[in-house]
């Protein structure tokens, strides 16, 4: 890994990371503020006004009354997947394919650093920035909940929730990064890098609406991710391992392909 490049990549991309963090922090503030332990029943009854299919698609169907479960359901069911996915799509494309497409990548390769080292650094930044984003989100969550509802948050469960959500988003990042390394042109890199994560998300939402369509959920990478079950103590170790496995395989494949392919620089 090249520290000089990592530093420069960070300098060129940290603003985007900050913007996404602010959006998530804002949502989090709104949702934590809306929490009222005394009127959870009312909130749940409000759900009855939703068409049940819609509620299921949004991962909102389960009855929860505690703060941790409430956050898992209202915040992590959709927002913590959808918004960071956009970040992953944009960043994945920016880090490799865009620089190959506009041929500025030539400058990275006209230094005494191997292609493997350079692409590994870019990929490392991609994953590390997602980790940083969720570390910040976790910290913000703990801070907001402690400030507004002392002792209401199950910090352990909330940590596990953020860990798995981070892995899910890293999986989306790996997909986007993989296509960014595979294609030399932005339109293909963005087409696949955005299309596939979005398709997975839609499949997952569709699969949630009825028993007949449940099969759709199981072919989506988001299908194994159930934030409410997770904070209620479901076993997630093998789910985490599976996500980690997908990330490692995609990352390794991306790096190897990029190292060997022809670059039209």
């Amino acid at each position: 890994m090249s520290l000089t490049l990592l530093k420069t990549t960070f300098k060129r991309n940290w603003i985007m990371l900050l913007i996404f963090f602010f959006v998530l922090a804002m949502y989090m503030t709104v949702i934590v503020t809306m929490y009222d332990p005394d009127s959870m029943d009312e909130l749940m009854s409000m759900l009855d006004l939703f068409p049940p299919e819609l509620a299921k698609a949004m991962n909102l169907s389960k009855v929860v009354t505690d703060l941790t479960g409430y956050l898992a359901s209202w915040l992590y069911g959709m927002i913590m997947i959808g918004f960071p996915m956009v970040y992953c799509i944009i960043l994945g494309n920016r880090l490799v394919a865009r620089m190959v497409d506009n041929s500025s990548f030539a400058y990275l390769l006209s230094t005494p650093n191997s292609r493997m080292k350079i692409i590994f650094t870019q990929g490392f930044y991609a994953l590390a920035s997602v980790a940083l984003l969720f570390a910040a989100v976790f910290g913000t969550g703990v801070f907001l909940c402690t400030a507004m509802f002392p002792d209401a948050l199950d910090t352990g469960a909330f940590f596990r929730l953020n860990l798995t959500t981070m892995l899910v988003n890293m999986t989306a990042m790996s997909i986007s990064f993989f296509f960014s390394c595979l294609f030399n042109e932005t339109r293909f890199s963005l087409g696949f890098g955005a299309g596939i994560p979005i398709a997975f998300l839609l499949l997952n939402m569709l699969g949630g609406t009825s028993e007949d369509l449940k099969i759709l959920k199981s072919i989506s990478i988001y299908g194994l991710y159930d934030p409410v079950d997770l904070v209620q103590g479901a076993e997630v170790l093998w789910v985490n391992l599976l996500y980690a496995g997908i990330i490692i395989v995609l990352f390794a494949a991306a790096v190897i392909i990029f190292d060997r392919k022809r670059l039209p620089l």
Partner: peptide, 22 residues
């Protein structure tokens, strides 16, 4: 041996494009 070669090589690309934002 591209990295070793780059130690003593200077290159001007035909279509120069720098890292943006710098």
């Amino acid at each position: 041996h591209a990295p070793e070669i780059q130690k003593f090589l200077g290159y001007i690309p035909g279509e120069i494009s720098f890292l943006d934002g710098m």
